[in-house]
C-alpha cells in the first residue's frame, strides 16, 4: 500500500482534498483567529530534555509556578505536541535528536531556546561537542539565563502566546548545511587559518 509516495487513499486523493479544505478555512478571518486562540492556550511541549535546564523546566511545571495554568502541558510523544523547549546545551549527539523530533512534529510548531547555552553556548561556548541551537531548528523565542528561573520560562511562554495571537507565523525553517559535523584538529586548524 505504501504511505507517502502517492498519498492516495481509497476515496480520492485525501491529501489534496484535505489540504484544500484546510487552506480555504484558514483564509477566513474568524477561523484564523479561532485557530490562533486554540494554539495560544494549547502549547504542549514535547518531552525532550536536552540538558540541565530541564530541572528548571520541571520546576516550572511544578506547583509553585504551574505553567499548566496557561494550557502548557508537557507531553510524551512528538506527534501530538507543537512546541519544543530546548533546555540548555545541545551536544552533537543531541542535535540530531532535536532535529528529528522537530521534523516529527506536525505543523504549526514553535521552538523556545531556553538558557544561555541554547542561545550561543553559554559557559560551554568553546567545547568540542556542542552545537548552537539556532543551527539546528528555527527558533521563535530566545530565553536568557543560566539557568533561567521558572518565572522567566513562564514569561517566554506568554511572549510566544502573544506572538501567536498577533498572527505571526512560526519561524521559517533554516538551511542545515552539510558542513563537517564533528571537526577534529585538522578541521579546526583549517577553520582558524581562514
Amino acid at each position: 500500500m505504501g504511505g507517502g509516495a502517492d498519498g492516495v487513499a481509497y476515496f480520492g486523493n485525501l491529501e489534496t482534498v484535505s489540504k484544500k479544505a484546510v487552506s480555504f478555512l484558514k483564509k477566513q478571518g474568524y477561523v484564523k483567529s479561532m485557530i490562533n486562540w486554540g494554539d495560544k492556550f494549547s502549547l504542549w511541549p514535547v518531552h525532550l530534555m536536552t540538558s540541565c535546564c530541564g530541572t528548571e523546566f520541571a520546576a516550572a511545571s511544578g506547583p509553585r509556578f504551574d505553567l499548566e495554568r496557561l494550557g502548557f502541558l508537557p507531553f510524551g510523544g512528538p506527534r501530538q505536541t507543537n512546541l519544543i523547549v530546548i533546555e540548555g546545551t545541545t551536544t552533537l549527539k543531541m542535535a540530531r535528536s532535536v532535529r528529528i523530533v522537530w521534523e516529527q512534529m506536525p505543523a504549526p510548531k514553535w521552538v523556545i531556546a531556553m538558557g544561555a547555552c541554547a542561545m550561543d553556548g553559554g559557559i560551554f561556548y568553546d567545547s568540542y561537542n556542542t552545537v548552537p541551537a539556532k543551527d539546528i531548528v528555527p527558533i521563535d523565542i530566545f530565553l536568557a539565563g543560566c539557568p533561567p528561573r521558572p518565572e522567566a520560562l513562564a514569561r517566554a511562554v506568554v511572549m510566544l502566546q502573544e506572538s501567536i495571537v498577533k498572527n505571526r507565523p512560526p519561524a521559517a525553517d533554516i538551511q542545515v548545511t552539510a558542513a563537517p559535523a564533528t571537526p577534529g584538529p585538522k578541521d579546526v586548524v583549517e577553520a582558524v587559518s581562514k
Binding site: 536536552t50 540538558s51 540541565c52 546545551t89 551536544t91 549527539k93 543531541m94 535528536s97 559557559i123 560551554f124 568553546d126 567545547s127 568540542y128 561537542n129 556542542t130
Partner: peptide
Amino acid sequence: IGFVHRTTEKL
C-alpha cells in the same frame, strides 16, 4: 550515554 557530554574536563 553522552547526549549531554559537555566536555567539562577539557574546558
